[in-house]
């Protein structure tokens, strides 16, 4: 399978990439790691007249720490997330989810920014960013803006990015001192995408109660979401069989689940509750 013909552009700066987006409008598409876009182009589900490869812009693939956050460049690959010492120590939820994406080859090519901009309803990193309340730094012709992860994903395969904007960086807060996190996933046996995935970060009080719990789920709804009712139910409680079960029952509140032959709606709901319970149990003190 070969994509239809396109003109290839390899800008060296963000400004040049934005200028290309402006001049080619709807006919242009950004190429990051290509692991969502190229398969679509090969199947001719996507036809692109101007392909703008941002892989040669320097400075878009880095992981660095500032005072209270970690800044991750949009072109950082899933492998780089999975293997980052800095993230392992200061924000381990990201590497724990990244190591569960696809396979070695996919992780070596696929990028954080590419995955976010593609906005697959089963993406692994989207619930992680929702649970961490990440900020996304975006650049367009008028300059830069920041957007909360919760405002970035608008619907299935659709984001708040304007056609002439580029996602530059993701900022996640450092993991709070007394916190633990987990990403639990039921992978599709063939594609290894999440049938259901649950990202959790919990801050504990000194006496071991949940102070602030954040849970987000992927694979269930057109857009991954925060399970606010479940979060609230955990506040002030220790993680016990009872509190875990109560929270797990609430993660699907108000959700109209996706449904397909592989995972019909009721099965998906069941998986969401079981997976949530597992994720929470993994955070309980031994």
């Amino acid at each position: 399978m070969i994509p239809s013909r396109f003109a290839y552009h390899a800008p060296r700066t963000v400004e040049d990439a934005i200028a290309l987006l402006q001049s080619h409008g709807d006919e242009a598409k950004l190429l990051a790691g290509g692991h969502s876009l190229l398969p679509l182009m090969k199947l001719r589900l996507a036809r692109v007249a101007h392909l703008i490869d941002i892989g040669r812009i320097e400075g878009l693939a880095s992981i660095r720490q500032s005072e209270s956050s970690i800044h991750i460049g949009a072109m950082t690959t899933h492998s780089e997330l999975a293997e980052s010492e800095l993230l392992a120590q200061r924000q381990p939820l990201l590497p724990r989810a990244a190591i569960q994406i696809g396979d070695v080859q996919v992780r070596n090519s696929g990028t954080l920014g590419g995955s976010l901009a593609h906005a697959d309803p089963a993406a692994d990193l989207v619930p992680v960013l929702l649970a961490l309340e990440a900020e996304l730094r975006i650049c367009g012709p008028a300059g830069e803006r920041s957007l909360a992860a919760g405002d970035f994903f608008t619907s299935m395969f659709t984001t708040a990015l304007a056609p002439d904007e580029i996602l530059l960086e993701v900022r996640v807060p450092l993991a709070p001192a007394n916190s633990r996190c987990s990403y639990e996933k039921v992978p599709h046996r063939a594609s290894h995408l999440a049938v259901v995935g649950v990202a959790v970060q919990i801050e504990f009080t000194a006496d071991g109660r949940c102070d602030q719990a954040r849970l987000a789920l992927t694979g269930l709804a057109p857009v991954p979401y925060r399970a606010l009712a479940a979060e609230a139910s955990l506040r002030g409680k220790t993680l016990s069989g009872e509190s875990i079960e109560a929270a797990a029952q609430q993660v699907t509140d108000g959700v109209e689940p996706l449904s397909d032959l592989y995972a019909p709606a009721d099965y998906r709901l069941h998986l969401a509750r079981v997976t949530t319970a597992r994720a929470l149990a993994s955070l309980a003190p031994l």
């Binding site: 399978m1 390899a10 190229l38 090969k42 490869d53 892989g55 396979d103 080859q105 070596n108 090519s109």
Partner: peptide
């Protein structure tokens, strides 16, 4: 498979294992 699943096309690009069916030749420039 030609759909980035099977890995028969795996090569190293700058030392990293990749599936060459899901990368453009121009990206290897």
């Amino acid at each position: 498979c030609d759909t980035s699943q099977c890995g028969a096309c795996s090569v190293l690009l700058d030392g990293k294992l990749v599936k060459s069916c899901t990368i453009l030749a121009v990206q290897a420039d």
